[in-house]
Design a binder for these strands. Structure first.
Lengths: 177, 177
DNA sequence: TCGAATATGTCAGCTATGTTGACATAAATT
DNA sequence: AATTTATGTCAACATAGCTGACATATTCGA
C-alpha cells in the first residue's frame, strides 16, 4: 500500500470520546430517522430494480396516483426538483404507459398527469410493503401514540410546504431557483 | 413542441380517482415520512454546500464522531455502501484533516477512524440544526408521546440492523454483495 | 513456515439523479 | 401585437451509488 497519509499521526489531534447526548443534541432520534428512512425506502427499491425504474420514478408515480390530474408545475413543486430532472423520468413513465397526459381543459398549456391502470398497479405495489412496515412499527402503539407519531412527523416538515392543495401565494419562480 | 406522445389519448385508459386510504394503505404516514426526511436532510445540506462536502461526507463524519475508533469494515456495515464508494469521501475527509486513521493495536491490518477537533466541530455543526428541528417537532408531546415516536422509528428499522455494537454473527461478506 | 484468508486501498468505468444555462413552442394575457 | 406563462428539450456537469479486477499488508491455520 502506498499510504500517502499518516497512519498513526503521532497521536496528534485525535479525539477518542464519543460524541454523545452530553453535547445537548438528540443523536438518538437523528440516527433512528436515518436508519428508519433507509429501510423504509429499501422495500420499494427492491421492486423497482425489477422493473428498471428508480426512486425518482417511484415518487412521480406515487404523487400522480395520489392526485390524478395534477399539473407538471404542481408536481415540480411537490418534489422540489427541476423540470429537466423530472423530464427524464416522466418521459419514461409516459412512454412505458404508466402515466398519461391530458391538455388542461381551461388552460390548454397545462399538461395534466393521470395514472393508467398499469400506473395505479405499480403505485399500489410500491406502497404496500411500506404500509406494512408502518403498520408493523405502529403495532404496539395505542391511539395517542399513533397521534404522537403523526404530530412529530408533521412537525418535522417545513411549514412552507405541504398540501392544502393550494397555498396562499408561493412567489413566482420560473425554474425553481 | 414535437409531442411524440399522445396528449389527449381519446380518454383511453385514464384513472381519475385519487389513490386513497380505501386501498387499505397508509398513504398519510408514507408521505409524512417522505417530506419529513427531505426537510430533515435539508438543514445539514445547506451547511455542506458551503464546505464543499456532500451528504456522503456527513454520514461518515457523523458515525466516526459517534464511535471513535471504529474500523472501516464497521463503518461500511453501518452505511451499507461499498468500500469504493466510501473510499472517495473518506479520502477527502482524511486529506482535509477532519478524520484521522490509526492502525489497529491488535490487528494492524485494521484502520481505526477517529475524528480530529475539526471533524468534531463539523459533526456538531451538522447535528445542531437537525436536533433543533426534532426538539421543535417534539415540543407538543409529553413523555409517552416521545416514547411512542422512538418506538415507531425503531420499529421501522430492519431488525438485522442497528447497534448492540456487536451483532451475533453477520455472515462473512467481502465487498457487500 | 508457508499458503490462504482477511482488511484495506485503488483503478477504471458505468448508472441514477440531481444541477445550470440556453432555447423552442403553444397558449393565455395585457 | 407583444409579453408572459407552461411546458419541453438539448447539452454539459456533479454527486454518489455500483461492479469488477487487482495490489498490499497482516494474520491465521495446517
Amino acid at each position: 500500500m502506498s499510504h500517502t497519509g499518516a497512519i498513526n499521526p503521532e497521536n496528534a489531534e485525535i479525539l477518542e470520546t464519543p460524541m454523545g447526548e452530553i453535547d445537548g443534541i438528540d443523536f438518538e432520534i437523528i440516527e433512528l430517522l436515518f436508519f428508519a428512512y433507509r429501510d423504509f425506502i429499501s422495500d420499494p427499491d427492491a421492486i423497482l430494480d425489477t422493473s428498471g425504474f428508480g426512486r425518482a420514478h417511484h415518487r412521480v408515480v406515487h404523487f400522480v396516483n395520489r392526485e390524478p390530474g395534477l399539473t407538471v408545475a404542481a408536481l415540480l413543486d411537490t418534489l422540489k426538483i427541476t423540470k429537466q430532472s423530472l423530464a427524464r423520468v416522466l418521459k419514461q413513465l409516459i412512454d412505458s404507459g404508466y402515466i398519461a397526459q391530458v391538455a388542461g381543459p381551461e388552460d390548454r398549456r397545462q399538461r395534466k398527469l393521470f395514472p393508467t391502470a398499469r400506473g395505479r398497479e405499480l403505485a399500489l405495489a410500491l406502497a404496500r410493503p411500506q404500509s406494512c412496515r408502518i403498520a408493523d412499527a405502529m403495532k404496539g402503539l395505542d391511539e395517542s401514540g399513533r397521534a404522537a407519531v403523526k404530530t412529530f412527523l408533521s412537525g418535522m416538515i417545513n411549514s412552507a410546504n405541504r398540501s392544502g392543495a393550494a397555498d396562499q401565494d408561493d412567489m413566482k419562480e420560473g425554474q425553481r431557483r
